[in-house]
Each structure stands twice: as structure tokens, then as C-alpha cells.
């Protein structure tokens, strides 16, 4: 079980780092918004896996809340991209 957790965490961390490399290479606003979404979902995945290793019981609450709240960050980034216009 521990092996699965750490392999998954390693893959997700690699994905987040690749996204950050993308931001460093080119920083147009749309890419930054897309990468911020990717890093958010990587963070949720890493939290779930580390919680699994610690045998936490709130994991699915966290997963459902993260799924429902994630839209807020993206929509506010969308508003920032258009400078407040719709």
C-alpha cells in the first residue's frame, strides 16, 4: 500500500513540476491560468494519497469539497484574464 502511495505522489509531483517549468518558459496569462488549475488538482491528489497513508477518515469529504470549490479559483482567474469585463 505504501508503495502505491509514494509512486502516485511522485508522479503527481512530477506533473506539478512540469507545469511550473511551463510557466517559467512562457508566461502568457492563459497558460498561467491553465497551469494553476493543474497544480491545484495535483495538490488535491497528493493530499488524498498522503491522507491514505495516514489512514485519515475525512479523505472523501476533502475530495468532494475540493471538487466543488475548485471552480471558484478558475472563474476568478477567468475574470482576471478579461480585466473584470465579462
Amino acid at each position: 500500500m505504501t508503495v502505491i502511495v509514494w509512486i502516485t505522489v511522485a508522479i503527481l509531483l512530477l506533473a506539478a513540476v512540469l507545469g511550473l517549468v511551463r510557466v517559467l518558459l512562457s508566461r502568457d496569462d492563459a497558460s498561467v491560468a491553465a497551469v494553476s488549475d493543474l497544480v491545484y488538482f495535483c495538490a488535491v491528489g497528493i493530499f488524498l494519497m498522503v491522507g491514505l497513508a495516514a489512514e485519515s477518515i475525512v479523505l472523501l469529504d476533502v475530495a468532494s469539497l475540493a471538487a466543488l470549490i475548485g471552480i471558484l479559483a478558475t472563474v476568478s482567474l477567468a475574470r482576471i484574464l478579461t480585466r473584470g469585463r465579462r
Partner: peptide
């Protein structure tokens, strides 16, 4: 778990290599 992480990784690689924000 590992399959899901690989889907995320594929998205990240695609993000790294694609050419525009959209």
C-alpha cells in the same frame, strides 16, 4: 491511483509541449 496519476502526468506533458494558451 497510479493510472489516475498517469492521466494527470500526460496532461502536464501535453501542457508543456503544446504551443498556445487555449
Amino acid at each position: 491511483c497510479i493510472g489516475g496519476a498517469i492521466f494527470v502526468l500526460l496532461s502536464a506533458i501535453a501542457m508543456l509541449r503544446s504551443r498556445d494558451g487555449l
